[in-house]
Amino acid sequence: MVEVYDSSRELVKIVPCRWTPNNDMAFWLSQDDETILQYLSTSPYAEPPHFDHHIKSTIQFLLDHPTADGLFPGGQPHLYCRAEDGRWKRA
């Protein structure tokens, strides 16, 4: 976490990461909410109501992007700064 925020430049830096493509995880997209909660949560009784939706959207993202190459062209990090309205914008 120390390297994520550059306080001297007030920038958030997201560096490229790697993951192994795994089409088998598509199985979870067809599972009901209770099954996802039971098998993919470490604390199913403490999860927020949107947990299953978040897990499914994360799985879909990984299926849509089997490697980070398209997300981080040339291996370059993404830099973000605060806009005047308080939102983060691409620097």
Rank of each mutant, 00 (worst) to 15 (best):
V2S: 06
V2H: 08
E3T: 12
V4C: 05
V4N: 08
V4E: 13
S8C: 07
R9H: 11
E10I: 05
E10M: 09
L11T: 14
V12K: 07
V15E: 13
V15S: 11
P16G: 06
P16Q: 04
C17G: 08
C17L: 12
W19T: 09
W19E: 06
W19F: 10
T20K: 08
T20C: 01
T20R: 11
P21E: 10
N22G: 05
N22D: 14
N22Y: 12
N23C: 04
N23Q: 11
N23S: 11
M25E: 09
F27W: 14
F27V: 12
W28M: 02
W28Q: 03
S30L: 09
S30F: 10
S30D: 10
Q31N: 03
D32H: 07
D32W: 06
D32A: 07
D32S: 06
D32T: 06
D33E: 15
E34S: 13
E34P: 09
T35P: 06
T35E: 10
T35C: 08
T35K: 02
I36K: 00
I36D: 00
L37H: 04
L37C: 11
Q38R: 13
Q38I: 04
Q38Y: 07
Q38N: 12
Y39K: 13
Y39E: 05
Y39M: 03
L40I: 07
T42P: 10
S43Y: 11
P44Q: 09
Y45G: 06
A46I: 09
E47M: 15
E47V: 15
P48R: 12
P49D: 15
P49C: 07
P49K: 12
H50W: 15
H50Y: 15
H50V: 14
F51A: 08
D52S: 15
H53R: 14
H53S: 12
H54C: 12
H54W: 13
I55V: 15
I55P: 03
I55S: 02
S57K: 15
T58W: 11
I59F: 05
Q60L: 13
Q60F: 09
L62W: 08
L62A: 08
L62K: 03
L63F: 03
D64E: 13
H65V: 02
P66I: 00
P66N: 02
T67W: 03
T67P: 11
A68C: 02
A68Q: 01
D69E: 15
D69H: 12
G70C: 06
G70H: 01
G70W: 04
G70M: 01
L71F: 05
L71T: 00
F72D: 01
P73Y: 01
P73T: 01
P73E: 02
G74A: 03
G74V: 05
G74P: 14
G75A: 07
Q76Y: 09
Q76P: 03
P77A: 03
P77G: 00
P77F: 00
H78E: 00
L79F: 11
L79S: 01
L79W: 02
Y80K: 00
C81P: 00
C81Y: 07
C81D: 04
C81E: 11
R82N: 08
R82T: 11
R82G: 05
R82I: 01
A83V: 03
A83M: 04
A83C: 11
D85T: 08
G86F: 04
W88R: 01
W88C: 05
W88E: 00
K89V: 14
K89C: 09
K89Y: 01
K89H: 04
R90N: 04
A91I: 03
